[in-house]
Nucleic acid binder design. Structure first.
Lengths: 205, 205, 205, 205
DNA sequence: GATGAATGAGCGTTCATTCAT
DNA sequence: GATGAATGAACGCTCATTCAT
């Protein structure tokens, strides 16, 4: 029915607007310091209305985090897949990630501030979802690297460990940039990350 | 005076006992979900007594985190310094860190859960202290690596970035172990970390 | 809009109901011994609701005192101004005041118990407001008496001091009645107060 | 026994020292804002020791107020009795009172701040004691004035009411001076009080 | 469906009093 | 007797959630 389609579209738009507002507010202070009234005001809804879109505060929070995180990884993977060869793919993986970091520092501060907020069921399930997203992404990287091993471009090391190492090198660089904001883009480190990941620090004589 | 010495010793023991209990409890749930009454009960004191040792909840939390973190880095550095040559020092740096992680997983969960809790003065100052401890430790690593550069053992790359890369590789491995607890010790990854840090993933033909 | 008018009217009625309840309770014991829960229960609201009408306990208290005191003085002055000549005006000033005392003994007990409760900002400002109301009222009396001096009916004494003397004679009589409740109305003293104020106690031979 | 006499003397001195300290502290803030620890520190005793002299906080407070108030009225009466004739006695009554006010403003602020602190038994009994002291003093004044009536110096009005009027005129002047501190001594008003009390404000033609 | 007023459970902190030393 | 550490009850206030309109 056309009518219900429009309704649904509107519903989703409102929902997205709330999530966007919530993201901004949760980024600025701790979970417990954000009130539903605050989110309601800032997004132009009544407190009661929020409960039509989300079961409660926890659900609003976990939904926001979970959806945004998936979006981030999806973006990175999409860019990566468009690169031509393996080297360029790895380079893009690093660069697209850092670019997202640069553009969404507020959101990512949530992960520095704390991924786990309470021990309630909703939050545990968020935690699981986050880990899941991480692992999916690492698996994506792992597959990438496995191709490199097969092709002889990379050393034959445990591919999962390698993928994690790369992911955490990127992540570490991001965290550092967020905690020590510089005018320099986090993307300026992409070359270094790539180099150390590929060649290590040891001088080969 | 002997009397006051004993008193002071007892005071410090009680204080330490509270910190230990608090560490366990704060590790299990979020800051806001921990109540003073809970800590008091678990440590065998009355709520009022906690306030003789700490100015308040925030102070109890920040003191605990700050003191323990400093202790951790000090331990790692002490071990590292005892190693004979640079290679062994780097190896020990990795291993001692992972060993501390294995033994103090509860405490370190706090950092996965979130370092920043509210934006109060006490918490901001904690945040600063934590960053400070990190940077001191990274500087320690940096100095180590600079020796390696001078001696020609390591490639001539920015030493700070190298130090950070190493630190975050260790940290990442720790985080992973904590989030995906295995029966395997986190120390089992020390060889891999050392290898990837020294040699990278690229196959040299 | 009719709707919002009704809302506002209801809001004001509830607010007034709370103030009335609070007046009774604060009159019965000291500020610190009154709890918000008590006022909430007695006025049929939840504790949380009180905070929709007043910023906090202090604000509830100071608002109640300040508004009621202004109301009292306004009433007295209104009555006074309606009297025909100076003598009758003074008489009415005394009588209207005593009448208010009789009808609002509970509220006025607050002033016997103590006008100043803590030294917080809110309370200091209340103290200032009270002094202000007093002085306005005394100034009103002063103007009255000055007319009497000009017209030659009253002795040429400092008008401010005279006004204070009259005000405090009334107040003293009120206080006495409140502390030693008799079946007799406080208004029975109006003749005596007027007499002593006008003629003093000395026998003129 | 000499020994116990000395002990008792020392006991009383300590007790008096505590009362003096308490007077100063209670004068500065509200009853509930004064802590036993504060009084203990300021008077050089331990908190525990205070309980050897007074049953508790309330008892300490009520004892202090009650004893000091009795002392004040006793002083005033002693001075009054030394005056030669009735006129001078009334004059002295006013002056000695104002003089005490000037010297003990801190203490008397307690009565402006609030005579009734809680509704506990101890406080109710204090309230009674205070009223009692007031009435004794007013009776003393009453007797004085009755002599004046008998001797034909004063008009034949209800002596109790006259006594109260005089007492409250003095009290009002004191309160005003305390609330509006001037460099001028409160004693400067004694002439005015005497005049208005004796002659009223009405011009006799 | 939308609103926002009402609810009331929950917590950090203080401090009078006790009592082991 | 003197001490002061330990106790724990008590309270103002917030805010997620509900529900009458």
């Amino acid at each position: 029915m056309v009518r219900s389609e429009r309704k649904e579209r509107e519903f989703n738009m409102r929902r997205a607007a709330i999530l966007e507002t919530a993201e901004r507010i949760f980024a600025a202070k701790s979970y417990h310091d954000v009130t539903m009234a605050e989110i309601a005001n800032a997004s132009g809804f009544s407190t009661g209305s929020l409960y039509q879109f989300f079961k409660g505060k926890e659900n609003l929070y976990t939904t926001m985090v979970s959806e945004k995180l998936d979006f981030m990884f999806a973006e990175v993977r999409k860019s990566t897949e468009q690169a031509k060869d393996l080297l360029r793919k790895i380079e893009t993986l690093i660069d697209a990630h850092l670019q997202f970091v640069e553009r969404n520092a507020d959101f990512l501060m949530l992960f520095i501030k704390g991924e786990k907020v309470t021990s309630s069921d909703a939050m545990s399930s968020l935690h699981e979802k986050i880990l899941n997203s991480y692992y999916n992404h690492i698996t994506f990287i792992e597959n990438l690297l496995e191709n490199g091993i097969k092709s002889g471009m990379l050393r034959n090391m445990p591919s999962r460990d390698m993928a994690e190492a790369l992911f955490y090198l990127i992540r570490a660089s991001s965290v550092k940039w967020m905690l020590m904001p510089t005018t320099e883009s986090p993307r300026s480190k992409r070359g270094f990350i790539l180099d150390i990941f590929l060649n290590g620090v040891k001088k080969n004589d």
